[in-house]
Design a protein around this nucleic acid. Sequence first.
DNA 1: TGTTAATTCTACCTTTAAGTAGTAATTAAA
DNA 2: TTTAATTACTACTTAAAGGTAGAATTAACA
Lengths: 137, 137
Amino acid sequence: MQLSNSSQYAIRILAYMTDKKDSPLINATELAETLFIPYKFLTKIMTDLVKVDLVESIRGREGGFKLKKKSSDIMVGDILDVFNDSIKDEQCVLGIGFCNGLCKCALHDQWMEPKLLLQKMFRESSLEDIAGRGCKI
Amino acid sequence: MQLSNSSQYAIRILAYMTDKKDSPLINATELAETLFIPYKFLTKIMTDLVKVDLVESIRGREGGFKLKKKSSDIMVGDILDVFNDSIKDEQCVLGIGFCNGLCKCALHDQWMEPKLLLQKMFRESSLEDIAGRGCKI
DNA sequence: TGTTAATTCTACCTTTAAGTAGTAATTAAA
DNA sequence: TTTAATTACTACTTAAAGGTAGAATTAACA
């Protein structure tokens, strides 16, 4: 019951980039070393983030990455979507999709409240909200 | 962000066994067919549940399974523990263990409330509470 | 006492997530 | 124009989850 490594890494990467948004560009080596993420895995994740336009990349010498939007406009949920890690409305705690509130499975009622809280947290927390804590890992 | 298949199956299996607790024994074939769980995978799960004393097995012809405790004494959390799927106190939403409330990582504050709700739901929901809904899958 | 219906054990196979390696493409600086 | 620093691409390897196969074990029943 937790987020995938890719999602966890991506949140930490983007939160760090938010902290350093005054720097014009941040490169993969700095991200990997500061955040203790395997370099090659990190570059793969960055490519994904570039593809969905959360991050802009500048290739070549002196290149690097920067946020493509204001940090207050990037929500945690947007990041989770990239790695198929968000909680869908129809997702039942027992993994049966598409119950749409009609499902009467065990735990259905108990699941509603934490599920809504998690969805709200993912939907309403922006990078701006969660950054600036000085905690790198 | 969801429970493992093994945990999901195990909850459904035990909830079904609770529904049928008047039957002296329930065998693997019935469970697999009723709950649409692959037979061989189900028997592996049952073996795990037997080893931790949630279920009792009677081998041989006319054998089968039955709950080893009162259904009001088996909590959902006990089941998740078997498959290492419960939420530990020190578990951070970003997957970093052992932050023990000292962690200041992104999302730390936002994670507390849903985390406590989920832990409470797992700790306080017994099979008795969640069974009897007539929903098999 | 042999047959049969059941669980259990050991080992394997498949799929997906996680991580690695090598090289190509790009670009600024020397 | 060469070189070094950088991201992007393709393919591979490893680890874990999910699932399968078949034989061994057990015990009721005929």
